[in-house]
Design a protein around this nucleic acid. Structure first.
Lengths: 245, 245
DNA sequence: CGTCACTTTGAAAGCTTTCAATAGGAGTGG
DNA sequence: CCACTCCTATTGAAAGCTTTCAAAGTGACG
């Protein structure tokens, strides 16, 4: 996937001029240098929704899930966090969601205060912070379309493709999360997720070496099922977040 | 609803100190002063998803819907925009969604370039821009939970309550959008929305003077149906976006 | 080899959608 | 002022997709 470093200096779309800063090459993740690395075991929580949002986190290894819970226990996973992602940059006084380790996870943290103080002073970091927020927003909009208007099969295939785009190697993807996590992410039940997987395998669109390692066999068919037309692919190339000036 | 002016200087949660700037009282909306006011008729589009994101908009009057469409025509409305909202602050080179007038709408626009140039130079505006983005993110997370895990009735009631919070007067709310808009916002069909409304009326939880003007009769019952417990109410008070320092 | 957690599969139930028809309202023209 | 049209909303009945409930299968671990 794109590291923040890569996403800051894309080919500039013609419509704008991009401000050029003295190229220190500083990226958000660098702010965490020198901080101790903390490890979390699978299922451990890093923070809970509603906690005072005292820290910003940099994920070095592993995968996290971020989720919201209804009073009666129903859960929605609103995103998965991969290495290189900066997490907890909500602007509110309290975290908007809980974060839990899916796999073993290594993170570093810095206090919100100093994170924002630094970002406030450095235009380069500021741009990146905006970029992060806008990438998150873009992903959130995609997810709303998925949850509101896609069928179970479309949701599962969309998910597989998005994992592939983020962390796929060749045509194989790793799904470190459980079926329950996937279900809560897609607004389905574990049974439905399982059935859709089975159905895709029977049709040879995917195959599984083990339950958490899949191979995507027919990308173009899968893309069509997910509703990822060429337009969407096109969009990808311009969804590099940048600060116009 | 809260104007940006109000949301910038809330009671500070105890965990942080808030940077105090020379109080110019400048708000994002002020950046649009002097710009001509443009009018749009209901159903007119202000911009389309994928258009070059050349402008930022300030909504003075009316209500807009912002939506995404699947290749086959299925539509998801990802939000409604009310007066005072600033729209189009995506960070990408192209708009992430289409914006269409629900009612007659009056807007002003400024070029992205100058919007960001100004914001970049003024810490006060910067904070507000972050605030806007984070409010949007918070709303997006709420919506994902709604779409992924709430029943039809819970969705409709949640919607009514959120409209009430944004623009309710006493216990009455205006729903300028059609049932189709509401359905596309809630991931339902118009028939289901209609049935839920009918059901709520039969139980005297709401009543309607006309199809677009409702009275919420039993707020606490409605809140319970929507899954808005006291915790959530509590959250509201700390969801005033601010820049920690 | 037994336990436990996760996953898969089957069958029935349930909720929402689809299809179809009716009703209500605003605007137009005779 | 009424008839007519169009669009939106409501209501009913049947269909469909996903969920729920239940049971069996799989794999990691002690």
């Amino acid at each position: 996937m794109d590291s923040p470093r890569q996403s800051v200096s894309p080919v500039a779309p013609s419509a704008f001029h991009w401000r050029s800063f003295p190229s220190t090459g500083l990226v958000l993740n660098d702010m965490f240098e020198g901080q101790p690395v903390e490890s979390f075991a699978p299922a451990q929580a890093i923070f809970w929704e509603g906690d005072a949002a005292s820290n910003i986190f940099d994920v070095q290894e592993g995968v996290l899930r971020i989720c919201r819970i209804l009073p009666d226990g129903r859960r929605a996973i609103v995103g998965f966090i991969y290495p290189g992602d900066v997490m907890g940059v909500s602007f509110e006084a309290r975290y908007l969601f809980s974060a839990e380790a899916v796999t073993k996870v290594k993170i570093r943290r810095i206090p919100r205060n100093s994170f924002f103080a630094q970002v406030d002073d450095m235009p380069e970091l500021r741009q990146q912070l905006f970029a992060v927020l806008c990438d998150e927003m873009s992903a959130a909009l995609d997810q709303m379309l998925l949850l509101g208007r896609k069928s179970a099969e479309e949701r599962v295939v969309s998910f597989l493709l998005s994992v592939h785009r983020k962390s796929g190697i060749e045509n194989t993807i790793e799904l470190p999360m459980t079926r329950l996590d996937i279900a809560d992410y897609l607004g389905l039940t574990i049974e439905t997720v399982s059935r859709m997987m089975t159905s895709l395998m029977r049709r040879c669109l995917i195959s599984a070496s083990d339950k958490h390692t899949l191979t995507l066999r027919k990308m173009s068919d899968l893309r069509q099922i997910a509703g990822w037309d060429e337009t969407e692919e096109q969009m990808e190339s311009v969804r590099r977040a940048v600060w116009p000036h």
